[in-house]
Amino acid sequence: MNTQDPNERTAEAGEYVLGTLNAAERQAFEAAMARDEGLRREAYAWQDRLLGLTRRLQPVAVSPELWARIAARLSGVSQVVATPARSGAANDALWSSVQFWRWLSGGAVAAAMVMSVLLVRTLVAPPAGVEQAQVEAPRYLAVLQSPDNAATGWIVETVGTDAIRLVQVGEGATIPQGKTMQFWTKPEGAAGPTSLGLVKPGQVVVVPKGQLPGLAERTLFELTLEPAGGSPYNKPSGPILFVGKAVRL
Protein backbone atom coordinates (compact mmCIF):
# COMPACT_ATOMS: atom_id res chain seq x y z
CA MET A 1 0.00 0.00 0.00
CA ASN A 2 1.18 3.51 -0.80
CA THR A 3 0.71 5.09 2.60
CA GLN A 4 0.91 8.64 1.26
CA ASP A 5 -1.80 8.68 -1.43
CA PRO A 6 -5.09 9.57 0.34
CA ASN A 7 -7.20 7.52 -2.10
CA GLU A 8 -4.98 4.49 -1.61
CA ARG A 9 -5.31 4.82 2.15
CA THR A 10 -9.07 5.13 1.91
CA ALA A 11 -9.35 2.14 -0.41
CA GLU A 12 -7.05 -0.04 1.70
CA ALA A 13 -8.93 0.81 4.91
CA GLY A 14 -12.22 0.13 3.11
CA GLU A 15 -11.00 -3.24 1.90
CA TYR A 16 -9.77 -4.04 5.39
CA VAL A 17 -13.24 -3.50 6.85
CA LEU A 18 -14.92 -5.13 3.84
CA GLY A 19 -12.76 -8.21 4.38
CA THR A 20 -11.23 -8.52 0.89
CA LEU A 21 -7.60 -8.22 1.98
CA ASN A 22 -5.80 -11.55 2.04
CA ALA A 23 -4.20 -12.70 5.29
CA ALA A 24 -0.80 -11.10 4.58
CA GLU A 25 -2.33 -7.79 3.45
CA ARG A 26 -4.59 -7.71 6.48
CA GLN A 27 -1.69 -8.27 8.86
CA ALA A 28 0.30 -5.55 7.12
CA PHE A 29 -2.66 -3.18 7.37
CA GLU A 30 -3.17 -3.92 11.07
CA ALA A 31 0.52 -3.30 11.72
CA ALA A 32 0.35 -0.02 9.78
CA MET A 33 -2.83 0.98 11.62
CA ALA A 34 -1.15 0.41 15.00
CA ARG A 35 1.40 3.10 14.11
CA ASP A 36 -0.82 5.42 12.08
CA GLU A 37 -3.69 7.20 13.81
CA GLY A 38 -4.99 8.54 10.47
CA LEU A 39 -5.30 5.03 9.08
CA ARG A 40 -7.13 3.89 12.21
CA ARG A 41 -9.50 6.81 11.74
CA GLU A 42 -10.13 5.70 8.13
CA ALA A 43 -10.91 2.15 9.27
CA TYR A 44 -13.38 3.34 11.94
CA ALA A 45 -15.06 5.56 9.35
CA TRP A 46 -15.51 2.56 7.03
CA GLN A 47 -16.97 0.48 9.87
CA ASP A 48 -19.72 3.04 10.18
CA ARG A 49 -20.16 3.73 6.46
CA LEU A 50 -20.68 0.07 5.58
CA LEU A 51 -22.71 -0.84 8.67
CA GLY A 52 -25.98 -0.19 6.81
CA LEU A 53 -25.29 -3.22 4.60
CA THR A 54 -26.01 -5.47 7.57
CA ARG A 55 -29.60 -4.24 7.48
CA ARG A 56 -30.17 -6.26 4.34
CA LEU A 57 -30.45 -9.37 6.48
CA GLN A 58 -33.25 -10.53 8.73
CA PRO A 59 -32.31 -11.43 12.33
CA VAL A 60 -31.78 -15.15 12.95
CA ALA A 61 -32.59 -16.80 16.29
CA VAL A 62 -29.64 -18.16 18.23
CA SER A 63 -29.74 -21.15 20.53
CA PRO A 64 -30.83 -20.20 24.07
CA GLU A 65 -27.72 -21.99 25.38
CA LEU A 66 -25.31 -19.82 23.41
CA TRP A 67 -24.98 -17.15 26.07
CA ALA A 68 -24.23 -19.74 28.75
CA ARG A 69 -21.45 -21.13 26.55
CA ILE A 70 -19.96 -17.64 26.15
CA ALA A 71 -20.27 -16.82 29.86
CA ALA A 72 -18.58 -20.09 30.81
CA ARG A 73 -15.51 -19.17 28.78
CA LEU A 74 -15.22 -15.52 29.86
CA SER A 75 -12.99 -16.14 32.86
CA GLY A 76 -10.48 -17.87 30.59
CA VAL A 77 -10.02 -14.75 28.47
CA SER A 78 -7.37 -12.16 29.29
CA GLN A 79 -8.59 -8.71 28.40
CA VAL A 80 -6.44 -6.27 26.52
CA VAL A 81 -5.98 -3.09 28.51
CA ALA A 82 -6.08 0.07 26.46
CA THR A 83 -2.63 1.50 25.95
CA PRO A 84 -2.36 4.92 27.54
CA ALA A 85 -1.35 7.86 25.39
CA ARG A 86 2.08 7.95 26.99
CA SER A 87 2.76 4.33 26.06
CA GLY A 88 6.17 4.95 24.51
CA ALA A 89 7.90 5.54 27.79
CA ALA A 90 6.05 2.74 29.56
CA ASN A 91 6.93 0.22 26.87
CA ASP A 92 10.56 1.22 26.93
CA ALA A 93 10.62 0.73 30.65
CA LEU A 94 8.96 -2.65 30.34
CA TRP A 95 11.41 -3.71 27.67
CA SER A 96 14.31 -2.68 29.87
CA SER A 97 12.91 -4.56 32.81
CA VAL A 98 12.36 -7.70 30.75
CA GLN A 99 15.93 -7.58 29.45
CA PHE A 100 17.18 -7.02 32.92
CA TRP A 101 15.17 -9.85 34.37
CA ARG A 102 16.36 -12.24 31.69
CA TRP A 103 19.91 -11.45 32.62
CA LEU A 104 19.12 -11.79 36.27
CA SER A 105 17.08 -14.96 36.17
CA GLY A 106 20.03 -17.27 36.59
CA GLY A 107 20.93 -15.58 39.87
CA ALA A 108 19.69 -15.97 43.39
CA VAL A 109 16.05 -15.24 43.93
CA ALA A 110 16.75 -13.24 47.06
CA ALA A 111 18.90 -10.86 45.06
CA ALA A 112 16.22 -10.79 42.41
CA MET A 113 13.64 -9.69 44.91
CA VAL A 114 15.78 -6.79 46.02
CA MET A 115 16.52 -5.77 42.47
CA SER A 116 12.84 -5.99 41.62
CA VAL A 117 12.07 -3.24 44.07
CA LEU A 118 14.53 -1.00 42.30
CA LEU A 119 13.26 -2.00 38.88
CA VAL A 120 9.63 -1.53 39.61
CA ARG A 121 10.28 1.80 41.26
CA THR A 122 12.59 3.19 38.61
CA LEU A 123 12.15 1.50 35.25
CA VAL A 124 8.42 0.98 35.41
CA ALA A 125 7.80 4.40 36.85
CA PRO A 126 4.30 5.71 36.20
CA PRO A 127 3.83 8.49 33.67
CA ALA A 128 3.94 11.97 35.14
CA GLY A 129 0.53 13.13 36.30
CA VAL A 130 -0.67 9.80 37.61
CA GLU A 131 2.15 9.52 40.08
CA GLN A 132 0.10 10.98 42.90
CA ALA A 133 -2.63 8.38 42.64
CA GLN A 134 -0.16 5.55 42.40
CA VAL A 135 1.75 6.47 45.49
CA GLU A 136 -1.30 5.37 47.48
CA ALA A 137 -1.75 2.00 45.75
CA PRO A 138 0.17 -0.93 47.19
CA ARG A 139 2.49 -2.65 44.73
CA TYR A 140 3.07 -6.35 44.52
CA LEU A 141 5.50 -8.60 42.81
CA ALA A 142 5.43 -12.37 42.43
CA VAL A 143 8.41 -14.29 41.06
CA LEU A 144 7.17 -17.49 39.43
CA GLN A 145 9.62 -20.36 39.60
CA SER A 146 9.72 -23.88 38.25
CA PRO A 147 8.95 -26.45 40.97
CA ASP A 148 11.50 -28.75 39.28
CA ASN A 149 14.66 -26.63 39.33
CA ALA A 150 13.61 -23.37 41.02
CA ALA A 151 14.52 -21.41 37.85
CA THR A 152 12.68 -18.10 37.58
CA GLY A 153 10.54 -18.11 34.45
CA TRP A 154 7.98 -15.34 34.82
CA ILE A 155 7.08 -12.43 37.08
CA VAL A 156 3.74 -10.90 37.96
CA GLU A 157 3.86 -7.21 38.83
CA THR A 158 1.30 -4.50 39.48
CA VAL A 159 0.90 -1.93 36.72
CA GLY A 160 -0.38 1.42 37.93
CA THR A 161 -3.41 1.18 40.19
CA ASP A 162 -5.66 -0.94 38.00
CA ALA A 163 -3.87 -3.95 36.61
CA ILE A 164 -1.29 -6.65 36.98
CA ARG A 165 1.09 -7.82 34.29
CA LEU A 166 2.60 -11.25 33.64
CA VAL A 167 5.98 -11.10 31.90
CA GLN A 168 8.34 -13.89 30.91
CA VAL A 169 11.79 -13.14 32.26
CA GLY A 170 13.69 -16.41 31.98
CA GLU A 171 13.87 -19.68 30.15
CA GLY A 172 10.26 -20.75 29.55
CA ALA A 173 8.83 -24.23 29.56
CA THR A 174 8.56 -26.20 26.33
CA ILE A 175 4.90 -26.45 25.40
CA PRO A 176 4.15 -29.68 23.50
CA GLN A 177 1.83 -29.70 20.49
CA GLY A 178 -1.82 -29.67 21.53
CA LYS A 179 -1.02 -28.12 24.91
CA THR A 180 -1.20 -24.60 26.27
CA MET A 181 -0.19 -22.66 29.37
CA GLN A 182 -2.94 -21.35 31.62
CA PHE A 183 -2.51 -18.55 34.12
CA TRP A 184 -4.19 -18.87 37.55
CA THR A 185 -4.42 -16.95 40.78
CA LYS A 186 -5.59 -17.78 44.28
CA PRO A 187 -5.69 -15.31 47.16
CA GLU A 188 -4.57 -16.76 50.46
CA GLY A 189 -7.47 -18.61 52.06
CA ALA A 190 -9.58 -18.75 48.86
CA ALA A 191 -11.37 -22.01 48.14
CA GLY A 192 -9.81 -22.50 44.71
CA PRO A 193 -7.85 -20.87 41.92
CA THR A 194 -9.35 -18.52 39.34
CA SER A 195 -8.27 -18.71 35.71
CA LEU A 196 -6.78 -15.54 34.23
CA GLY A 197 -6.59 -16.94 30.72
CA LEU A 198 -4.30 -18.81 28.36
CA VAL A 199 -0.73 -17.66 27.84
CA LYS A 200 1.71 -18.19 25.00
CA PRO A 201 5.47 -18.33 25.59
CA GLY A 202 6.89 -14.81 25.65
CA GLN A 203 3.47 -13.16 25.79
CA VAL A 204 2.91 -10.18 28.09
CA VAL A 205 -0.49 -10.53 29.72
CA VAL A 206 -2.18 -7.58 31.41
CA VAL A 207 -5.17 -8.34 33.64
CA PRO A 208 -7.36 -5.60 35.15
CA LYS A 209 -7.45 -5.85 38.92
CA GLY A 210 -11.23 -6.06 38.68
CA GLN A 211 -10.85 -9.57 37.29
CA LEU A 212 -8.76 -10.81 40.18
CA PRO A 213 -10.53 -12.47 43.09
CA GLY A 214 -8.14 -10.45 45.27
CA LEU A 215 -4.61 -9.17 45.44
CA ALA A 216 -2.62 -9.06 48.66
CA GLU A 217 0.52 -10.36 50.30
CA ARG A 218 0.88 -14.11 49.54
CA THR A 219 -1.68 -14.17 46.71
CA LEU A 220 -0.64 -17.15 44.63
CA PHE A 221 0.01 -17.03 40.87
CA GLU A 222 0.82 -20.05 38.75
CA LEU A 223 1.15 -21.25 35.18
CA THR A 224 0.01 -24.80 34.48
CA LEU A 225 0.26 -27.04 31.42
CA GLU A 226 -3.22 -27.68 30.06
CA PRO A 227 -4.87 -29.17 26.96
CA ALA A 228 -5.26 -26.71 24.05
CA GLY A 229 -8.16 -24.39 24.85
CA GLY A 230 -7.48 -24.56 28.58
CA SER A 231 -8.37 -26.79 31.48
CA PRO A 232 -11.68 -28.59 30.94
CA TYR A 233 -12.49 -27.92 34.61
CA ASN A 234 -12.83 -24.76 36.62
CA LYS A 235 -9.42 -25.51 38.16
CA PRO A 236 -5.99 -26.57 36.93
CA SER A 237 -5.88 -30.09 35.48
CA GLY A 238 -2.21 -30.32 34.49
CA PRO A 239 1.23 -29.95 36.12
CA ILE A 240 2.47 -26.66 37.54
CA LEU A 241 5.15 -25.10 35.30
CA PHE A 242 5.83 -21.98 37.37
CA VAL A 243 4.44 -20.82 40.69
CA GLY A 244 5.03 -18.00 43.15
CA LYS A 245 3.40 -15.79 45.78
CA ALA A 246 3.06 -12.03 45.77
CA VAL A 247 5.18 -9.89 48.05
CA ARG A 248 4.36 -6.30 48.84
CA LEU A 249 7.00 -3.83 47.74
Partner: peptide
Protein backbone atom coordinates in the same frame (compact mmCIF):
# COMPACT_ATOMS: atom_id res chain seq x y z
CA UNK B 1 -18.16 -18.29 15.32
CA UNK B 2 -20.50 -15.98 17.21
CA UNK B 3 -19.37 -17.49 20.51
CA UNK B 4 -15.68 -16.90 19.66
CA UNK B 5 -16.47 -13.42 18.37
CA UNK B 6 -18.15 -12.41 21.65
CA UNK B 7 -15.08 -13.60 23.54
CA UNK B 8 -12.97 -11.45 21.20
CA UNK B 9 -15.23 -8.47 21.86
CA UNK B 10 -14.69 -9.04 25.58
CA UNK B 11 -10.95 -9.42 25.09
CA UNK B 12 -10.44 -6.43 22.80
CA UNK B 13 -13.04 -3.99 24.18
CA UNK B 14 -10.20 -2.03 25.80
CA UNK B 15 -8.87 -1.11 22.35
CA UNK B 16 -12.17 0.47 21.23
CA UNK B 17 -11.88 4.25 20.78
CA UNK B 18 -15.21 6.09 20.95
CA UNK B 19 -13.76 9.30 19.49
CA UNK B 20 -13.05 7.48 16.19
CA UNK B 21 -16.41 5.85 15.48
CA UNK B 22 -19.43 3.94 16.71
CA UNK B 23 -19.30 0.95 19.02
CA UNK B 24 -21.78 -0.87 16.83
CA UNK B 25 -19.54 -0.52 13.77
CA UNK B 26 -16.59 -1.83 15.80
CA UNK B 27 -18.56 -4.86 17.03
CA UNK B 28 -19.72 -5.80 13.52
CA UNK B 29 -16.15 -5.59 12.23
Amino acid sequence: VLQDAFLQIWQKAGTFRRELGSGRGWVYT
